[in-house]
Simulated assay, not measured.
Amino acid sequence: MRDSLPPHRTIVRFAPSPNGLLHLGHARSALENWRTAEREHGTFLLRIEDIDADRCRPHYETAIFEDLSWLGLDWPLPVRRQSEHLDAYREALAELQALDLVYPAFLSRADSARAIASAEADGAAWPRDPDGAPHYPGAERAMAASQRRRRVEAGEPFAWRLDMRAACAGAAGRLQWLEADGAAGRMVEADPASWGDVVLARRDTPTSYHLSVTVDDHVQAITDVIRGRDLYHATSVHRLLQTLLGFPAPRYRHHGLVTDASGRKLSKSDGDTAIASMRAAGMSPASVARLAFAGEAPGDDQTF
């Protein structure tokens, strides 16, 4: 892994998952990164985040290449695919395990929901993360190491979760990031504790989004992370992991989201405003770019 960022050179990345067709929101993010690299004589990288083997498909990856090329973007080869670098994530997870900052979590989603519902029925105000999901109960934090080991060796399903309280204590000091939303930017106070004990890996997959994106950005020497506003709060977790793993912090910029007429964020699963559909309907790359930066998707009655 690289130990430091190359000086005075901007490196950005667009990192989609091949689990559906890219839509107008992806065009916005890709173009934001591309234009930054062009303006600053830097490098635009394409990364394929394909750790979810159940949902990612080769034809969607092919479609990503086609859509971005049609928009006028290009990038250095080879492209980094997360599925080809699982050992890097295992290494990072092992570092956190050696620091005793992760634990095997055995509760299923249903078991966790029942425990939370029971606590709330007794009048407890259960904490929730910035996305509105309840924090994991974390009873295993107090479990003896020998008991954890026996359950893991017995083959019980589990996920590796970050012990957030221990991790925040281990990071020591204030966590911040530079949000480059103006001429000078501003420093933002990170609040990783608001996420609770996030998942870092699963028994059958040695990573999760939070861990892999942190490792990848470091390995690829990303200087500027430019992504949608929906990931703004997740930056707190990434800053914590960067600190624990000894990685330097990139600059961040979280741009606005492209939404539909109701204000809902576009989704691959709903087939919203797919770039491929716009291309097939005869729209030009310039027209798609204008729509992406207008901040809104075309209405149902608009023809392309």
Score class of each variant (00 low, 15 high):
T10W: 00
T10P: 01
V12R: 00
R13P: 02
R13Q: 08
R13A: 05
A15S: 13
S17F: 07
S17T: 15
N19F: 13
G20E: 03
L21I: 06
L21G: 05
L22G: 08
H23Y: 15
G25Q: 00
G25Y: 00
H26S: 12
R28M: 03
R28E: 03
S29E: 04
A30D: 01
A30G: 07
A30N: 08
L31N: 05
L31D: 04
E32I: 03
E32G: 01
R35G: 00
R35H: 05
R35W: 10
A37Y: 00
A37P: 01
A37F: 00
E38F: 01
E38K: 08
R39L: 01
H41S: 02
H41N: 03
T43Y: 01
L45G: 03
L45D: 03
I48T: 12
E49D: 13
E49P: 09
E49A: 06
A53I: 05
A53G: 02
D54I: 05
D54T: 10
C56K: 13
C56V: 11
R57H: 14
Y60L: 06
A63G: 07
F65N: 08
D67P: 06
G72I: 11
W75G: 06
P78I: 05
V79R: 13
V79S: 05
R80A: 04
R81N: 06
R81A: 05
S83K: 05
S83V: 09
H85M: 04
H85G: 09
L86K: 13
L86P: 11
D87I: 04
A88Q: 12
A88N: 11
Y89F: 08
E91S: 06
E91M: 07
A94I: 10
A94H: 14
E95Q: 12
L96W: 14
Q97N: 09
L99Q: 15
V102R: 00
Y103L: 02
Y103C: 02
A105Y: 15
F106V: 03
D111E: 15
D111R: 14
S112Y: 07
A113N: 13
A113C: 09
A115G: 04
I116A: 09
I116W: 08
A117L: 09
A117Y: 12
A117E: 13
E120V: 10
D122H: 15
D122T: 11
A124S: 14
W126K: 15
P127K: 12
D129G: 04
D129V: 10
D131A: 08
G132I: 09
P134K: 14
P134E: 11
H135R: 14
Y136S: 14
P137H: 14
E140V: 09
A142M: 14
M143N: 11
M143W: 15
M143G: 04
